[in-house]
Amino acid sequence: MSFGEPAPADQQPDSFTFTGENLARAQQIIARYPADRKQSAVMPLLDLAQRQHANWLPRAAMDAVADLLEMPKIRVYEVASFYTMYNKKPVGKHLVQVCTTTPCWLCGSDDIKRAIKDTTGVQAGHDHRHSDDGQFTVIEVECLGACVNAPMVQINDDYYEDLDYERMCGIIEALKRGDAVPVGSQTGRRGSQAQLGPTSLIERAPDAVRAAGAPRAGEGAD
């Protein structure tokens, strides 16, 4: 079940080549590093390859990156297998990562998992699980760093925050229909603003202070 393992041979494509456009981007990325340190570009190139190839990295793509960077294949495998953001096996169109670490869990990540189960039929667990229609791949993950807006999920590159059962169901249904879903908080709050409105910096600073120059941090809160 380990994330690091490659996909079985029958799922591996025979070959992988960067598209002309991506190859040009790859060359741009490589140019950022000294010529004798080409292999520094391995991570962005793997990402590029993954984006080109249905969001997962077949062996052929890793080999292509190794050839491009003139590094031993095993050194690329090591990098690719280390990071969980590289998918070594095929994933659905929507890769749903549900955070279940303490803050999200306290704010109801169990409901989110239930919503996903009810809409996609997939019970989130510690490995990639796919819906029957192949559209969704679900996995339970540790903290994604959006605790203030808990609970949250990450779908492909985007965060969906301030979720509850209904909102999660709504998002999945919208994705199924192919509709656009606004990313970020689903309750409309901006960024990570406090949910009950501002609790600090809510008064105007006294005129004397404003006249003295820019207010210093914390002064306006009194």
Binding site: S2, F3, G4, E5, P72, R75, Y77, E78, F82
Partner: peptide
């Protein structure tokens, strides 16, 4: 002959 490597991470390193 760089053929051996450490793949995976943490508990899953091989």
């Amino acid at each position: 002959m760089p053929e051996m490597g450490a793949t995976g991470r943490g508990e899953h390193m091989e």
